[in-house]
Every structure is written in C-alpha cells, then in structure tokens.
Design a protein around this nucleic acid. Structure first.
Length: 262
DNA sequence: GCTATTTGACCCGG
DNA sequence: CCGGGTCAAATAGC
C-alpha cells in the first residue's frame, strides 16, 4: 500500500519549495534572511521531493492508472485527436489527392502561457506556420518540437510578440516534451552550444529572428536570464504536475524519465 | 542532396 | 461565414 502520509508530506514539501522559488523569482533575489538559498538549490530540492513522492507511489501496491491526457497536453491522443491524422475514422478529405489532412483545433485550456524576454527555452523547435492575426501588428508563429518525427515529441508552441513595446513575447505551450531537454540538469550554460552539439546550434533552433527579423543577433541572447528561464520552466512544470496530481491523482510520463530523475 | 523555412491553401470551431 | 491552426509544396540555405 502507499504510505499516503509520506506521500502528502513529500509533495507538500515540494510544493512549498516551489512557492519559495516562485517568491525568489518574483523578487529576483537569490537570498533569504535565513541564509543563502540559490534557485538551483531550490530546484534540486523540488526535484528530489517530487521524485521521492514518485518513489512512494511506485513502491506501493498501486494499480497504475494509464496516464491520461494531461490538461496541458493538447497533443495527447485520447482527449484531443492527433494533429495530423491520416486516418481519422471518417472519410477524410485528405484521402483525396491534393487535399490537406484533417485535424482538430487545439484547446487553449490545455495550454500554459508564458511571457518572456526570449523565446528560447533550451529546446529545439521547428517552425511550421505563421499567421497574421486580426487586430494585431505582430504575426503569430507556430513551432513544434524538432524531434517530433524522431521521438514523437508532441510539444508545440505559439509565439507572438507583444505589442506593448516591451520586446517581450507571448508564448503558449501545448503538450509536454517527450524528447530529452537539451539544457536540463546542471548544465545551465544555455549559451554554450558546444555542450549540446546535437541541438541548439542547428538551424532548427529558433531565435527571435523568426518573429522579428529586424532584431540584431546580439540582442537575441538573453544571457542574464538563462538560469532564471531554466528555473522558471521547472517551476511551471512542478506546479502544474502537482496540481494535476492533486486533481486527478495522475502524473505524466516525465516523472518516470530516469534521465530527468536518475 | 538534405533539412529547415516560407507561405498559400485547406480545414475546423465558434 | 470568418478567424485562426495546420498542412505541404516551393524555396532557401548549408
């Protein structure tokens, strides 16, 4: 059986750590009055807390419920049909030569939103579309994970430049990466492309040029926010996963990824 | 030649 | 019917 008390305590600890991290990030101060607390330490602590919770879960006589389509995963197959379906059940127009494939529109409720100075998040994205949006000067760009073909990664994101003159970007993420995050772990030097020879330096790695070609390349790298962006991304993941677990008792596949939690 | 990007067409949901 | 999300042919870059 699952030690429910231990599980609750472990996850609660993780939640509290996440809140601390959230406060730290809001204050942009990496210290506490009770001593130095780095973002990395907190992220590590959160990671261990959730991993501990997962161990408790796995050690119990748990009949593991198949991971449902997560609320943040618009690509998941049972809640939302696959984006590209050569076989959707009905006789698709795509069956006719020269017609496009049938697909379902994503639900915004399955997304998570972020406003960032940079559209880089360590993952390799491939642009697959761009649209002019009504009453908006900035086009919306559509990206999917570069490893969609290789690893079946279903992560997708939409990026649109904010029109408030802040040079920030409104980013909507759909789905979770099932591929390996190129910048995860302790390597926070996201500007050191040589440490990730297979990924970010490829042409598929998006830059702000994809959104605003007028921007200079030296303006694109947000060097100071590299670690912060990493931590922010994890904060999002942890908080979301915790909420999902508390709501429906399920964890997504990322928690069984040994490469993330060895 | 291979891969990524661009862009107009297609398709769906509201 | 319209706006927006996606596809895929054409094109560009390496």
């Amino acid at each position: 059986m699952i030690n429910k008390k231990e599980l609750v305590e472990t996850l609660t600890k993780g939640r509290n750590s996440a809140k601390k991290l959230q406060n730290l990030l809001r204050q942009e101060v990496h210290e506490h009055d009770d001593g130095l607390v780095s973002v990395d330490d907190l992220v590590s602590e959160i990671s261990q807390s959730f991993y501990g919770g997962l161990l408790v879960l796995n050690s119990g006589e748990l009949t593991r419920v198949p991971v449902r389509a997560r609320p943040t995963s618009a690509c998941s197959s049972d809640k939302t049909p696959q984006v590209f379906t050569g076989d959707t059940g009905k006789t698709p127009a795509s069956a006719v030569k020269g017609r496009r494939g049938c697909y379902k529109r994503r639900k915004t409720i399955d997304s998570r939103v972020e406003v960032s100075n940079t559209i880089e998040d360590g993952y390799a994205w491939r642009k697959y579309g761009q649209k002019e949006i009504l009453n908006s000067n900035s086009p919306r760009c559509y990206f999917r994970c570069t490893h969609k073909e290789a690893h079946g990664c279903k992560a997708v994101k939409q990026v649109q430049k904010l029109e408030d003159g802040s040079n920030k970007f409104h980013i909507i993420y759909f789905g979770q990466h099932t591929c390996q995050p190129p910048n995860r772990g302790l390597d926070l030097d996201c500007n050191n492309s040589e440490s990730h020879p297979n990924l970010p330096n490829s042409p598929s790695t998006i830059t702000k040029n994809h959104i605003d070609p007028s921007l200079k390349q030296e303006d694109l790298s947000n060097k100071g926010s590299c670690s912060s962006s990493f931590a922010l991304a994890w904060k999002e993941i942890f908080l979301n996963e915790f909420e999902c677990f508390m709501n429906d008792g399920n964890l997504s596949d990322i928690w069984s990824d040994d490469s993330i939690f060895p």
